[in-house]
């Protein structure tokens, strides 16, 4: 997935809220905990985070409310100025950008979807979607054509002249999504886009979102507090707590090898067999016999084979060649949820 240089790369990023965050950070001794900082009257929104997002990758940032995930994503787009560390977007230090360049970056490279939609109540669907295009000065015909195109893409055709309050929640978020896509951004930020929706609609929107992503293949930073959602969508998941990233890895690895107790608790109630892929359990040096199974299949997909088949090792193929074999015993343990 990560083919070339990372699109977003942040190193030791701090975001502290308080009266004089810069001064405080400069004088702060190393190893201060979240609570230590809090006792000094400051809030560590983002605490020493280093993370990279590759081109075309979908990074999901997961955490409970107040864990700093929204703050972090706002640092990426410089909606918040960071207190310490560096953030580079496509090799550019965004803290060094002049206001004009920052505006240019947002007008051409970034799109963002908000939890409560953030729609402008006085504009129609069409005008909301065309808003970023209007801001960058595109002429009326071009922006209307483009807006109609994305409105069609999110399935809101025929509602162009509605005002936001005339739409349902799911429809409003489709407008939000369409607006964020109007400028054809390279980087797409989604801040809990489906949290405000009913569970049924949420599921539908997730499917819709996956369909879109399949078509568009953007670099995505997706925020959620819902671990299931994260597992469902993510290439990689970063789990945050008290402003810091506890673990950042693929869903399989997080489920199989939680780095901390906090992460493990999240994985407890998860049906691991639906998350873990055959590729994770592959032992390259093991030899299996008989028909191979696909490395991209989840253990849950393989359940019938695993239960019926009596082979000790089952060969795994990535589609072109056999890359090793998985232990049936291990796979069955994942399936039944034993640790």
């Amino acid at each position: 997935m990560t083919t070339d240089a990372p699109v977003i790369s942040c190193k030791n990023v701090w975001k502290i809220f308080g009266d004089d965050p810069e001064g405080y950070l400069a004088k702060m001794p190393a190893g201060q905990s979240y609570d230590d900082i809090r006792a000094d009257g400051y809030i560590a929104g983002v605490k020493d985070v280093s993370i990279e997002v590759g081109r075309g990758e979908m990074l999901v940032i997961m955490g409970l409310s107040g864990s700093g995930k929204s703050t972090l994503v706002r640092c990426f787009s410089r909606l918040h100025d960071i207190t310490g560390g560096t953030i580079e977007v496509e090799g550019q230090d965004i803290m060094a950008l002049a206001e004009k360049d920052l505006i240019d970056l947002r007008r051409n490279k970034m799109g963002m979807v908000f939890q409560s939609f953030g729609l402008l109540p006085h504009r129609t669907v069409l005008d909301n979607v065309a808003f970023p295009l209007e801001m960058r000065g595109q002429d009326k015909h071009a922006r209307r054509a483009r807006a109609l195109e994305v409105i069609k893409l999110v399935g809101l055709e025929g509602r162009e002249d509605y005002f936001p309050r005339e739409l349902s929640g799911g429809q409003q978020q489709r407008v939000g999504i369409a607006r964020s896509l109007a400028i054809e951004p390279d980087i797409w930020f989604l801040d809990e886009p489906f949290s405000a929706l009913d569970p049924l609609i949420r599921r539908e929107m997730q499917d819709e979102f996956l369909r879109l992503q399949e078509m568009l293949g953007k670099t995505i930073v997706f925020i959620t507090h819902d671990f299931d959602e994260a597992l469902r969508l993510a290439d990689r998941i970063a789990i945050m707590k008290d402003g810091a990233v506890e673990q950042c890895d693929t869903p399989d690895q997080i489920v199989m090898h939680p780095a901390t107790e906090y992460v493990r608790k999240f994985t407890e109630d998860i049906d691991k067999s639906r998350v873990v892929h055959a590729s994770v359990l592959v032992k390259p040096d093991a030899q299996g016999e008989g028909d191979p199974v696909s490395s991209t299949a989840t253990i849950h997909d393989l359940a019938p084979t695993l239960v019926a088949d009596l082979r000790e090792f089952i060969p795994v193929t990535d589609g072109t060649a056999v890359i090793g074999a998985l232990s049936r015993q291990e796979a069955l343990e994942v399936l039944v949820g034993a640790d």
């Binding site: 909606l79 947002r106 963002m112 939890q115 953030g118 729609l119 970023p132």
Partner: peptide, 13 residues
């Protein structure tokens, strides 16, 4: 609402 503000900023206003 802060989200409307941020939406504006992210639209490159």
């Amino acid at each position: 609402s802060s989200e409307v503000v941020e939406a504006g900023k992210m639209s490159g206003c």
